[in-house]
Design a protein around this nucleic acid. Structure first.
Length: 645
RNA sequence: GCUCGGGUAGCUCAACUGGUAGAGCACGGCACUUGUAAUGCCGGGGUUAUGGGUUCAACUCCCAUCCCGAGCUCCA
């Protein structure tokens, strides 16, 4: 065994230290500044804590606060600090998992009663004490037997322990009184946790399994810098202000009413205008892109879903069947449709198709109904009556790549360019349980990836995340304040053409089976509008604004002139309204609160010479007086260009 | 669906350990005729989510149901 270990640093320089040296020793050898700043280290590609002593030569990159890999380490330690504080105040609490997550960390506890906000405040103070005590994190490798003894009082940990494979290294971490079964890594000591906050508590199933016991989860977050924590809390506050449920009420866009039931949306005039404009935008684009429009029934004999295979597989998400009543066979049951694909398949099947007809592209902006679990419903983001901008493309496998390429184009036009969303792409490949042979899957997955590559789009791969009937592209978009939302999907489907026995006649005069592409650009209008409300914080771009111009006469003397302006605007297809009540200040405040893009003020001066004082949303007192014709021309141009603010 | 917390006027919220509901905004009327984010006065509006129970008395306590919220699970 060698007497030294060689550490290769990022600049390729090599440090030799005695065998058994830890990464902290390495940091010390490099310099006191780094010793202080070091949080953890990447050793041969793996994040390790500084107590780690490599047994052989390694390459090392020491992580400081500035490295993105360091934050999860800090947060993971934050979870342990939380558990330390909880155990101090509630020694009987069982401990579950406590990992870092995207914006912070959580820890799950098994206790008799849920935590109150006062409990959380007490835990936060307790954490402060643990931080001040600056307890070192000690890592220790143990045998399975030892671990069983150490966690004899922690049934949840024992369960986890038994799942570890025979070859897996079992490690425990101790800080002060708190011991946890944990893989690590951790920061050197609890004192590193300076800027943290507990956010809220909630129930969570043990192992995420709804049949298991409910634990009490506490969410918190931690940052290296005070300013980062403040910025994060600020962002949460900003997100709250943008809540589409609150804005939906304030801007009178939609309502969900108890008498009608949860998850069912009333579109008030202004919200309906949004929905109509978006439907039209996608329908216009579809027609220009070689799609046909179709309309299909909202209810159907449930036989359709037996053929499609949705029954009984999808039954939990469907509304129960109903019978048509008198005069019809009681056994013939009807269902509202939870998706359009089988309907479109039947239109394809309604006539003989030639290879010359392909691809057949059928689109429909249609309501579908899904019996979502009540607890999952959420404003416009999760509803039971959904309006999908759905389309199905029937084509040969050879044509699929081009078709998907065109779908990506549409997404680019209608989502990225139109609203300024950044898009993230992911390809989900064959799952374990699947239909069709490997060669076809191979080809299908390659088709999706090639289409993305051809468009120059970078993407992630979700191995095994595809549907049983085919692989798919999932698109997420990032909104104005950096949140990710599930957006469009493009799916290849071998299954439905099979089940409906879809065929076209090939050039060889023989029947062939087409493939189907499912795609939705906005996904559902409900969810998309919900995200738009939050993305724009209710201040929609001019082309989409339900009310584009509010016309404000200064006094009654200009009412006539103002009415003429409204008529002039409406004549040019602009959505304008007059408000001649109360004081001007009051009306300006109202228009500002309603986030109307333009205010057109008509006073005595403007009325006499036929001009208008134009005030842009958010521009405060900066107004521009211009001839009415010019105002109109500007509006028309801005709408046509669909520019964003 | 599960855990916990809620439900008071159109909206946002008050009402001590049970004593019989109040404000602002909004709405209606009147006055004011307004030059860039709230003019003043007056008025109408509630079987306190629904149904049961305890009590002399229930917004308040108990039970059930419905709905909402934070999460979990699931998902467009």
């Amino acid at each position: 065994m060698s007497q030294t270990v060689r550490f290769t640093l990022p600049d390729q320089s090599v440090r030799k230290l005695p065998a058994g040296s830890t990464l902290m020793d390495l940091a010390r050898a490099i310099g006191p500044g780094l010793t202080k700043a070091a949080v953890a280290a990447v050793v041969d590609g793996e994040v390790r804590d500084l107590m780690y002593a490599p047994a052989r030569d390694v390459s090392v990159r020491i992580l400081t606060e500035r490295d993105s890999e360091a934050l999860p380490v800090l947060r993971h330690s934050g979870a342990h600090v939380l558990a330390t504080a909880v155990r101090e105040l509630r020694p009987e609490a069982a401990i579950g998992f406590g990992p870092p997550i995207e914006d912070g960390f959580y820890y799950d506890f098994g206790v008799d009663a849920p935590f109150t906000p006062e409990d959380l405040a007490a835990f936060e103070e307790g954490m402060q004490r643990v931080v001040e005590a600056d307890m070192p994190f000690e890592r220790r490798r143990v045998t399975r037997e030892e671990a069983r003894e150490l966690f004899a009082g922690d049934p949840l940990k024992l369960e986890r322990l038994e799942e570890l494979g025979p070859d897996e290294e079992i490690t425990v971490y101790r800080n002060g009184p708190f011991l946890d079964l944990c893989r690590g890594p951790h920061v050197p000591s609890t004192g590193r946790l300076k800027h943290f906050k507990l956010l809220h508590g909630a129930g969570a199933y043990w192992r995420g399994d709804e049949r298991r016991q409910m634990l009490q989860r506490i969410y918190g977050t931690a940052f290296f810098k005070e300013a980062d924590l403040a910025a994060y809390l600020n962002r949460l506050e900003e997100a709250r202000k943008r809540d589409h449920r609150v804005l939906g009420k304030q801007l009178d866009l939609f309502s969900i009413q108890e008498m009608i039931g949860p998850g069912l949306v009333f579109w008030h005039p202004k919200g309906a205008r949004l929905k109509w404009l978006l439907s039209r935008a996608v329908e216009d684009d579809n027609l220009r892109s070689g799609y046909e429009l179709v309309y299909t029934p909202n209810i159907t004999r449930e036989e359709l879903f037996r053929v499609s295979g949705h029954l009984p597989l999808y039954e939990a998400n469907q509304f129960p069947a109903m019978s048509a009543g008198t005069g019809e066979d009681e056994d013939v049951r009807y269902r509202v449709k939870p998706m359009n694909c089988p309907m479109h398949a039947l239109i394809f099947k309604a006539q003989q198709r030639s290879y010359r007809d392909l691809p057949v592209r059928l689109s429909e902006v249609a309501n579908v109904y899904r019996n979502e679990k009540s607890g999952t419903l959420h404003g416009l983001l999760r509803v039971r009556e959904l309006c999908m901008d759905d389309a199905h493309i029937f084509c040969t496998l050879d044509q699929a790549e081009d078709e998907i390429f065109l779908c990506l184009d549409q997404v680019d036009r209608l989502v990225r360019a139109a609203f300024g969303f950044e898009l993230d792409f992911e390809v989900s490949t064959r799952p374990a349980d699947r239909l069709g042979d490997d060669a076809t899957w191979e080809r299908a997955e390659a088709i999706l990836m090639r289409a993305l590559e051809r468009k120059g789009i970078a993407f992630q791969i979700d191995v095994g995340g595809g549907a049983f009937y085919g692989p798919k592209i999932d698109i997420q978009f990032r909104d104005a304040i950096g949140r990710l939302w599930q957006g469009p999907t493009i799916q290849l489907d071998f299954q439905l053409p099979e089940r409906f026995e879809l065929e076209y006649v090939g050039s060889d005069n023989r029947p062939h089976r087409p493939v189907m592409i499912h795609r939705a650009i906005y996904g559902t209008l409900e969810r998309f509008i919900g995200t738009l409300i939050e993305h724009f914080a209710g201040a929609f771009p001019l082309w989409l604004a339900p009310e584009q111009v509010r016309v404000l006469p200064i006094s009654e003397h200009q009412a006539e002139s103002a009415r003429e302006l409204v008529a002039q605007l409406e004549g040019a297809g602009i959505r304008a309204r007059l408000n001649d009540r109360d004081t001007l200040s009051y009306r300006i405040r109202d228009a500002e609160l309603q986030k109307i893009p333009y205010m057109a003020v008509v006073g005595e001066k403007e009325a006499t010479v036929g001009t208008v004082a134009v005030r842009r949303r958010g521009a405060e007192k900066k107004q521009q007086v211009m001839p009415r014709e010019e105002f109109l021309a500007r509006l028309v141009e801005e709408i046509a260009s669909r520019q964003l603010d």
